[in-house]
């Protein structure tokens, strides 16, 4: 598939950057003229993935989070592919981590719904991880509002 446009972003795993990551990806996506709902879906999914990097991948440390966002023409409607990568602790059991309500956090303040939210708000979700090397989350959203009817 032919990319229309692409951007790369890297920033430190500070929680104040959660809002920055949402705003930056939403702003890049604006050129596809998404609906308010499509934009909110992507902002939510990005927020979940970036929070995972901060809370889990780089727990008790500060590392770099990398985002690559590529826009494609798509078959019937344009698509946005967002890759969010860290070089943190990695996930031992990805399948387990993706189960709704599963969390390693013991404070009771994390719902364990991050991946479930990404899955329900995006069209595709792929998670690859290597323990002590890092995790890559790839998500695709079809911008249907601009598709051929």
């Amino acid at each position: 598939m032919k990319p229309i446009n692409e951007m790369k972003l890297s920033f430190l795993s500070r929680s104040s950057n959660e809002a920055f990551a949402r705003a930056a990806t939403a702003s890049f996506l604006a050129q596809l003229d998404p609906t308010v709902d499509e934009l909110a879906d992507i902002k939510t999914a990005v927020s979940e993935a970036v929070t995972n990097c901060i809370v889990h991948a780089y727990k008790n440390t500060i590392g770099t989070i990398y985002i690559t966002m590529t826009l494609y023409e798509g078959k019937n409607a344009p698509e946005a592919r967002i890759k969010i990568r860290d070089k943190g602790c990695g996930i031992e059991d990805v399948k387990k981590a993706m189960e709704p309500m599963y969390t390693t956090c013991t404070t009771g303040e994390r719902s364990g719904l991050g991946f479930a939210v990404m899955e329900s708000f995006m069209d595709k979700l792929k998670v690859t991880s290597t323990p002590s090397k890092g995790t890559t989350v790839t998500m695709v959203k079809v911008i249907r509002s601009k598709g051929d009817e």
Partner: peptide
């Protein structure tokens, strides 16, 4: 206007 799953964690924790 915006909430991610951290908002669910906020509700869960306050409930407890």
């Amino acid at each position: 206007e915006f909430m991610d799953s951290s908002g669910i964690g906020l509700v869960m924790g306050r409930y407890k």
